[in-house]
Structures are given as C-alpha cells and as structure tokens.
Amino acid sequence: TFVEFNGKKVEYPTPEAAEKAAKKLAKKLNLKVTKKNGNYKLE
C-alpha cells in the first residue's frame, strides 16, 4: 500500500500501517488524505 505526498511515494507493508502513516503525515503537513485504488494520497 502506497502513501503519496509531495511527489514522493512511500510503500508500507500493510494497509493499516499506510493508513496510520497517512493520517499522521496529513496532520503534520496540514493536508487531507484521499484514498484511491487502495492507496493514500495527501493533498
């Protein structure tokens, strides 16, 4: 499962880990999380 932000793509071993990381990053970077095709994107 990938988390995409600032043009970077980071892969996580589980969807749970990706979701957790996405939410944490979104909060830190003041972005919102969108889920697309099972992957997460911060914008």
Rank of each mutant, 00 (worst) to 15 (best):
residue 31 L to P: 01
residue 19 E to S: 08
residue 5 F to I: 09
residue 7 G to Q: 05
residue 40 Y to H: 04
residue 23 K to P: 00
residue 20 K to Q: 12
residue 9 K to R: 14
residue 32 K to G: 05
residue 6 N to P: 03
residue 26 A to I: 03
residue 33 V to W: 07
residue 43 E to M: 09
residue 32 K to R: 11
residue 3 V to Q: 00
residue 33 V to E: 01
residue 38 G to V: 02
residue 16 E to G: 09
residue 16 E to Y: 08
residue 20 K to N: 10
residue 34 T to L: 09
residue 30 N to Y: 06
residue 39 N to C: 14
residue 43 E to P: 01
residue 10 V to D: 04
residue 37 N to T: 04
residue 41 K to E: 13
residue 36 K to E: 15
residue 9 K to D: 03
residue 41 K to L: 15
residue 1 T to W: 15
residue 24 K to Y: 15
residue 39 N to H: 13
residue 43 E to G: 06
residue 21 A to C: 06
residue 9 K to N: 07
residue 24 K to G: 09
residue 36 K to Y: 12
residue 43 E to C: 13
residue 29 L to V: 03
residue 12 Y to C: 03
residue 26 A to P: 00
residue 41 K to Q: 14
residue 39 N to I: 14
residue 27 K to S: 10
residue 5 F to A: 04
residue 14 T to A: 03
residue 24 K to P: 00
residue 27 K to R: 11
residue 34 T to W: 05
residue 19 E to R: 11
residue 3 V to I: 08
residue 39 N to T: 10
residue 26 A to D: 02
residue 29 L to F: 14
residue 27 K to E: 12
residue 40 Y to W: 12
residue 26 A to T: 02
residue 32 K to H: 10
residue 25 L to I: 10
residue 17 A to H: 08
residue 5 F to C: 09
residue 21 A to G: 05
residue 17 A to P: 01
residue 9 K to A: 09
residue 32 K to L: 11
residue 23 K to G: 08
residue 6 N to H: 14
residue 30 N to Q: 10
residue 4 E to G: 01
residue 16 E to H: 10
residue 4 E to N: 02
residue 42 L to W: 02
residue 1 T to L: 07
residue 43 E to A: 08
residue 31 L to Q: 04
residue 26 A to Y: 00
residue 29 L to A: 04
residue 9 K to H: 08
residue 1 T to F: 15
residue 25 L to T: 03
residue 16 E to K: 12
residue 7 G to A: 03
residue 20 K to R: 13
residue 3 V to M: 04
residue 26 A to G: 07
residue 2 F to Q: 04
residue 22 A to F: 02
residue 17 A to S: 09
residue 12 Y to R: 00
residue 14 T to E: 03
residue 32 K to I: 15
residue 18 A to K: 00
residue 43 E to D: 08
residue 18 A to D: 00
residue 17 A to C: 12
residue 1 T to A: 11
residue 33 V to L: 12
residue 4 E to I: 10
residue 21 A to V: 07
residue 35 K to F: 15
residue 5 F to G: 01
residue 12 Y to T: 00
residue 30 N to W: 05
residue 2 F to D: 02
residue 21 A to F: 08
residue 35 K to A: 07
residue 5 F to D: 00
residue 34 T to A: 06
residue 30 N to A: 07
residue 32 K to F: 06
residue 38 G to T: 04
residue 12 Y to P: 01
residue 29 L to W: 13
residue 37 N to L: 06
residue 30 N to C: 15
